[in-house]
């Protein structure tokens, strides 16, 4: 047991120096060097200029839109993802394998295709857009459209993190709950839900992180108007189009910080949830 964890390198297998060296070199060139350029460039801006850029009303509006729609989309995915994951793991019905396979489609689909597809369906002339328009619901070119796009691209995360957690649930604990007089609803709420909550939060966090950075699908369904429907990624691109590389860098770094902070909070909550669950065991 000890030898596996503590051995510095088993002489029996070759290639350690070569493979680790290549890994570190490639990682440094492709990932670390460019990312450090981002941080150094932002550091070179000077605090005043940085702060002025990232607190400009147009920029603040873009954060609000980005994080607001991302949170909404991740929440929708958490709710429906839970239903879908439960259905896939626990229920047997014709077409289950197809449904299961389709969940990954947003991973495989270019985001531009997702965007153009949603625009086609939910624009005022689209199949569903013309149904919704008379009801006063405008989807495309509004924050609702952005939310819809972010829901689509975040769909697999919640389902795929929940599936193993639900599969790991022991039927015995549910039977034990039932034998102790719990109703099915009480079992769901007090036994099942707490034990899959950490996985649900992980999926939520992944969907959220993906949504915050999303660009390709959103620009097709948004009118991209400053202060109204302009997401942060788009703002970075327009700064670059105006050759304002410094401004783009400042917004990018600010976004990294905010999403990092949000993930930290979610991770903390998740740890809390899983600890409570472990204590309950």
């Amino acid at each position: 047991m000890f030898r596996r964890t503590a051995s510095t390198s088993a002489r029996a297998l070759p290639g350690f120096g070569l493979t680790l060296g290549y890994t570190v070199l490639y990682l440094s060139l492709i990932v670390l060097l460019p990312l450090s350029a981002l941080l150094l460039r932002a550091g070179g801006l000077g605090w005043d200029q940085f702060w002025e850029t990232v607190t400009h009303p147009r920029v603040v509006a873009s954060y609000r839109l980005t994080f607001g729609t991302s949170l909404a989309a991740a929440t929708i995915n958490a709710v429906f993802g839970l239903v879908v994951a439960w259905t896939l793991v626990r229920l047997r019905f014709p077409g289950r394998r197809l449904l299961d396979a389709l969940i990954d489609l947003p991973f495989a689909m270019p985001t531009a295709v997702s965007g153009i597809a949603l625009a086609a369906v939910y624009s005022p002339h689209g199949w569903l857009g013309q149904v919704l328009e008379p009801l006063g619901v405008k989807v495309v070119y509004t924050p609702i459209g952005i939310m819809l796009a972010l829901t689509l691209i975040g769909l697999p995360f919640v389902v795929r993190t929940l599936q193993p957690a639900i599969a790991d649930l022991e039927r015995e604990t549910e039977e034990a709950a039932a034998s102790l007089g719990a109703s099915r609803w009480q079992t769901h709420r007090r036994v099942i839900f707490p034990s899959i909550l950490p996985a649900l939060m992980t999926g939520f966090a992944l969907a959220l992180a993906r949504a915050i950075g999303e660009y390709g699908s959103v620009i097709f369904v948004s009118s991209n108007l400053p202060m109204k429907t302009e997401i942060a990624s788009l703002l970075i691109v327009s700064k670059l189009d105006q050759y304002d590389v410094g401004g783009a860098t400042a917004i990018a770094v600010m976004m990294l910080f905010i999403s990092f902070g949000m993930l930290l909070v979610i991770n903390g909550l998740q740890r809390l949830a899983s600890r409570r669950y472990r204590e309950a065991l």
Binding site: F2, R3, S7, A10, R11, A12
Partner: peptide, 10 residues
């Protein structure tokens, strides 16, 4: 560990 050293695996 002794056996693996004899084998040259360690």
């Amino acid at each position: 560990t002794l056996l693996r050293i004899i084998a040259g695996l360690e």
